[in-house]
Design a protein around this nucleic acid. Structure first.
Lengths: 258, 258
DNA sequence: CGTTTAATTGAAAGCAGTCAAACTATGTGG
DNA sequence: CCACATAGTTTGACTGCTTTCAATTAAACG
């Protein structure tokens, strides 16, 4: 639960007793195999999750069977707040890799939010940040060409992984198939392949199995029109957040871009 | 402020004193001319708005100058919670028509949320519903063709307007230019024009100036792959919400679809 | 190792974009 | 109330990015 505390602290300052309350939140550790569903469209979920290890994604199936991935979750993300707090889930959440989560009953979480306004505030902000990421994705899929879309998602994942303390400097692990990448970008897997090759040929990235190395960060952000504002990393509470491994570096990266 | 009370009640039940507190929230009425900006990217907004009259939209400008509209706001919507509660605004909010809003200082809203957990809960849910709409838009822009996209947005706007008590049965007012529609759908205005003509030729809709009549609701939802789950109208608190004008009808519509 | 899954390549087709022009509202000032 | 200006809609011809289909190669897995 330390992960959750750190995440929420980065959104809004929390007093010692509030941090304590989060740490004492009852939960159980669960694991999901690759491609296993954490939540299905139509479910009425009664639990939500903090992602501890691995990657997961949210997706929708449209008429005709095409899939659109609407979000990617990494370590520390609070998953499925949306669906568990509303009536029915309108999307699927699926494990991208083997996944370890802390599973929390919505009822317990509700009591926590009711007792501690500061925590409720932090959770609200966390939800708003997801919202901001969604909005950037709409712009990405709606108004950028394939090359730019690809560059953009690579930049986003790279920064988010750094913030989560998951990746070293240039390299990062991209545990998605090209088909999944396509489903996240509104492209076909064939075109994803060609687009990645294009970026590689131009020396912006290198690929090795499922690992991406960003060779030209500056240039890639330019191609992807990536401005990290929407990730809302430059929290007012930077001092507290800074203590997290990796965040400082990520902020430096983010600032270097502007 | 009654509008805000009704909206929040539809998300979560509120006691009399909580409703009272919302009604007493200090605010001022402001008006914005068509195309005037309520918020600009990069601003640090200190106020958020309840939309009382008119329409507004949120948009982002991508490299190259193209615009993507990421959301449309109608009467009763709580605007710019995202940006005012986070550090910097990452999107623009612009008046689509002449607009009347109740402008609330974020600080006041913050105090309200701190004092009344039930209100905080309702606001969180409201934010999560916006989030769900975003996620559907990603799927719309990413994985549907132009005809389907168009049908989908028409269905969404029609239902939301009914819920807000704004439109009679079949007709609804669509105060957007075709260029704005294109920017919302990731299409060019030229193609929007052709797509609308296509839907009209097939008898699904009729157009008259900026008014759309949906002739074949059933068929349009099929073309648009529109399932209103993501709007989360079927609130657990239907009993309270039902009192709102128009909602009952909208729910009936929504249920008829399934 | 064999089998399945994912990545890659090529050729052809199609949906939506681009460019440019004409037409239609809407609005303004004389 | 008309003439002109402006903004928005409509149309046509052409281009191009991305998809589709199909086949091959490479990687992952038990």
């Amino acid at each position: 639960m330390t992960l959750l505390v750190d995440r929420l602290r980065s959104r809004s300052p929390l007093a010692a007793e509030e941090r304590e309350a989060i740490l004492n939140l009852e939960h159980r550790i669960e694991e999901f195999e690759t491609l296993r569903y954490l939540v299905r469209e139509g479910d009425k979920p009664s639990r939500c999750y903090v992602l501890l290890e691995g990657y997961a994604y949210r997706h929708k199936i449209v008429a005709g069977g095409a899939r659109q991935i609407v979000g990617i979750h990494i370590r520390g993300d609070l998953i499925d707040l949306q669906n568990s707090m509303l009536d029915v889930s309108d999307e699927n959440v699926q494990a991208m890799t083997r996944v370890k989560v802390a599973s929390i009953a919505v009822a317990s979480l509700g009591r926590l939010l009711e007792s501690f306004p500061a925590i409720a505030n932090a959770v609200l902000k966390e939800a708003l940040v997801y919202s901001a990421i969604f909005s950037e994705w709409i712009a990405n899929v709606g108004r950028r060409d394939s090359r730019s879309r690809m560059a953009h998602i690579l930049c986003e994942l790279s920064v988010r992984q750094k913030v989560a303390g998951l990746s070293a400097d240039g390299d990062f692990h991209l545990p998605m198939t090209q088909e999944q990448l396509g489903d996240a970008l509104g492209l076909t897997s064939v075109h994803v392949n060609r687009t990645l090759q294009g970026l590689e040929k131009d020396g912006l990235i290198s690929r090795n199995k499922r690992t991406i190395r960003i060779n030209e960060w500056e240039a890639l952000t330019r191609v992807g029109d990536f401005r990290p504002t929407y990730l809302h990393l430059q929290s007012v509470h930077g001092a507290a957040a800074d203590r997290q491994a990796g965040l400082t570096m990520a902020l430096r990266t983010a600032q270097a871009i502007r």
